[in-house]
Nucleic acid binder design. Sequence first.
DNA 1: CAAATGACAAAATATCAATATTGTCCTTTG
DNA 2: CAAAGGACAATATTGATATTTTGTCATTTG
Lengths: 195, 195
Amino acid sequence: MNNDLPLTREAILDAAEQVLRRFGPDKTSVVDIAKVLRVSHGTVYRHFASKASLREAVTERWLHKSIAEPLEAIAGNVNGSAVERLKLWLEALIHAKQSFSLQDSEMFAMYAAVTLDTIEMIATHVDCLIEQIARIIRQGMDSAEFKPGQPEVLARSIFIATSRFHHPAHAREWLAETIDADFDAVWNLILLGIE
Amino acid sequence: MNNDLPLTREAILDAAEQVLRRFGPDKTSVVDIAKVLRVSHGTVYRHFASKASLREAVTERWLHKSIAEPLEAIAGNVNGSAVERLKLWLEALIHAKQSFSLQDSEMFAMYAAVTLDTIEMIATHVDCLIEQIARIIRQGMDSAEFKPGQPEVLARSIFIATSRFHHPAHAREWLAETIDADFDAVWNLILLGIE
DNA sequence: CAAATGACAAAATATCAATATTGTCCTTTG
DNA sequence: CAAAGGACAATATTGATATTTTGTCATTTG
């Protein structure tokens, strides 16, 4: 029944993302996704071992293109001070998460659900983000903008210390009026520690 | 049908806590609690406006006696350095939360559920804990152990920056092997900022 | 023969009537 | 008359059953 040429992994992810946005993670079945592709659901299982792995793959791709990639542009930009870049980077991460939780709520719900399973893939994504922070810090240490230290350890500390502002488990708290002031205060604490 | 003398608010909370520990927050009904008290459930409603407010009251009392009160002993002890006391206090908070999540799991589940409703009561409890940190910090600033600053703001930052280790939304992550190393790293970051 | 299908079993989820729970309030009791 | 009881309506939960969904695989198709 499949008209279009070879069914690719990417095409399945596209369809899955589309159905997911329409119905949400709870109401999306593999059959729904196959229907969009005009393919039997058995065919989808030729590309993904399980529904869980499909959900993971969708989330992984979304995290990469919506979070990691845009942040990479900030981390990789060597102009300006490291402090400025670090703050910009953190604010971008936080803004992305908080705005997706409101404006791309089904994909965000998918991501939050996958995060609860504490899957390898999430750890890898987090490591990737921490590595971006570490790069900024390393540069700040090289230019003596920051106190000397271990960039990786410090980067991980900063990521963890700001969890409240970017971890999906805290999404409800992002609506509080004090959220911006709280981030400023935590940022100042971090700054005292690194400069 | 009530034999014992006047039914007090505290007696209801005792019974509620007992039933809650036995059946867990999901399977505990007001009728179950009334049965333990040998009273009709209507009587319970003379003391609490709703089941939700009863759950809140149970959680509030538990948080106070299991968390805030023991920590008060640390915050109030004026011997030793403020740094030591602050670290001891944070470790005690974290240890209490993490150990209750395993060993008093039904009450912890109750607390986690109430926290999701982001109720006034939780905010008050948090303010109370932050005030304890602020007292330690104020003392550290007075003795020039810490850089000068606003104790309340700093205390709030430290509480938030350590959320990962004591907020119930992160309970699953407390099982990770890196959890202690992660706290040490965050503690070092905080220390750099305050000393 | 690689890719897809569709029939199938097992597991999960939806449905809906029966049952239980919540919350109110008028009555009873000490 | 203050405190508790218990009948009651509205809401939520349970449990038995029908339906859907997941995941497999022997067969079909291009």
